[in-house]
Each structure stands twice: as C-alpha cells, then as structure tokens.
C-alpha cells in the first residue's frame, strides 16, 4: 500500500489508521470496532446490510448525525463518533 494513501481518522477522539478507498464501516471493523451506535434502549448496533438500505450503521460523521458509515468513504482527519440515539445533537454548523 503506497504511503500517501494511509492516514488516520478520529474515532470517539482516538486516532485510528485508515486507508484511501475504504468506507468508514470497513475502517472501523478492521480496527476491531463493532459497536457503531446505541439504540434508544441502549442496545449496541453495528453495520448490517453494507449496501445502504438498512440504516443500522448510522454514526455521527464530521458532526453529522445519522450518516451511513457503510456509504461514506474515509477522508484524512475525519471525525467519527458512536451515535447515541437517545441523545442526537444538531450538526456542528447549526449549533
């Protein structure tokens, strides 16, 4: 893998290695992260269909809640956070 295509993203504030061309979901699974979201009852959820139709993989990506991690390509410096359905906050620019 050429060096310039490897970079880091922030997951819940901690840097994790990422690679160009991968989705957020792929990157997290590769780094051993399985819980992407907590439901309103606090249950853990991870990605499911991996093709954009089930919406189970929703996360807060660069401040945007409800982003589908399986459909979002990683970018250098991207901020990804576990989504807590009981407490979803407005996108940064709208706070």
């Amino acid at each position: 893998m050429p060096a310039e295509s490897a970079f880091t993203i922030l997951f819940d504030g901690r840097p994790i290695p990422a690679e160009d061309g991968r989705s957020v979901a792929e990157t997290l699974l590769e780094n051993g992260v399985h819980t992407f979201r907590r439901t309103r009852n606090g249950e853990p959820r991870g990605p499911f269909c991996n093709m954009g139709i089930c919406f189970e993989c929703r996360m807060v990506i660069d401040g945007h809640p409800n982003s589908r991690s399986c459909m979002t390509p990683v970018r250098p410096g991207m901020r990804v956070e576990t989504q807590h359905d009981s407490n979803i906050e407005a996108p940064d620019e709208d706070r």
Binding site: A25, E26, P44, P47, N50
Partner: peptide
C-alpha cells in the same frame, strides 16, 4: 441485531474487500 450478525451478501462484500469482522 447484535453487532457481528450480517446478511450473507453484507458480510460477503466486507470480506471481498479484505475485511474480516
């Protein structure tokens, strides 16, 4: 609904990209 459970095609497309969850 537990993380780590997928439909067949969903897991297949991860594994095809070299991701083993």
């Amino acid at each position: 609904t537990l993380p780590g459970v997928f439909p067949l095609g969903g897991l297949n497309s991860f594994v095809k990209h070299g991701i083993l969850p």
